[in-house]
Design a protein around this nucleic acid. Structure first.
Lengths: 166, 166
DNA sequence: TATTGTTATACTCTATAACTATA
DNA sequence: TATAGTTATAGAGTATAACAATA
């Protein structure tokens, strides 16, 4: 093959063509994967985190309201809640006013996990940004924030997990 | 909906706790999703892209070598190659020297798609970075590059697609 | 015996739609 | 009839391990 005189050592030319958007996706996926790794020590998975946070922020919410905010179909919430309920982090309480729906509440254990999650989050933050000084971290946050706003991203929601990627 | 005391207007307090790492994952996932959307017009999916690029860069590679570089199991490459072969973008040619393996080559159509992919990539880049001026884009690229290097990420490889996220 | 690629199998994740129980 | 939640089903994606052909 005469078209590739340099089989593997031209990393410079391999790296340059990739733009900022690719780098963003790559580093973002890495950050998400490392986060998943870290929280696995708490016995939870990324899919649990958003749900737990929503319940912590607004205890007593219904599954429907969670589904709507997450942008997923209600039947999926069933499995999600089953998951965290099985782990003893959340309980379903019948709403006495309208016995069709449940109120979702954190258990004591669930609250404990949420507290630990904040510690894990800080450690994760420090890990991912280890290459940057304080000034650079603020810069990065500002740039990302600008993109997020301009792209119309919802502040707390990570859409990555329900994307088909087909 | 009889919502909680502060249904949605405490976005500030919802946004702040999320650190730079979360923002990175969120924006990165968004960039990946938008990219997937764009290339779907070319009839390819993100999983195809890395493979096509590797074959374009080093025509004639074997499935094994691709599997190794991608960090996935060889049996998965079978389905991946089946995919792009079915689309008429890649062909398997028996290696006459060692008939156990295949040489992977782009077809004419495959080359055409790769060319269009570069255009799509530029448009995508412009879209994602629309909020930033040239100076800021360079800044962002530099910061991300620093993180990527420090975290030991392989330049051309996007690990996000094979992560279980459990 | 080792290597390249393939197939068989099983498991997870997810969406759709039918179903139940309450209203 | 409408709504909250559930279950049944089917389809995609993926990993593991057994397998065939070739070396």
């Amino acid at each position: 093959m005469s078209e590739q005189p340099l089989p593997g050592h031209d990393e410079r030319s391999l790296r340059r063509p990739r733009g900022t958007a690719f780098l963003l996706a790559q580093v973002g996926a890495h950050a998400a994967a490392r986060f998943a790794e870290r929280i696995s020590e708490l016995g939870v998975i990324p899919a649990d985190v958003g749900l737990l946070r929503m319940i912590a922020t607004q205890p007593g919410r219904s599954q429907q309201s969670v589904a709507e905010e997450m942008g997923v179909v209600p039947s999926r919430i069933v499995a999600l809640v089953d998951n965290v309920e099985r782990k003893g982090l959340v309980e379903r309480r019948r709403n006495p006013q309208d016995r069709r729906n449940y109120e979702l509440h954190l258990t004591a254990e669930g609250s404990r996990v949420m507290t630990q999650m904040r510690r894990v989050g800080s450690a994760h933050e420090a890990d991912i940004c280890a290459a940057l000084d304080d000034n650079q971290r603020a810069q990065l946050a500002g740039l990302l924030e600008a993109i997020a706003v301009q792209q119309g991203l919802t502040p707390g929601i990570h859409p990555g997990y329900q994307q088909p990627l087909r």
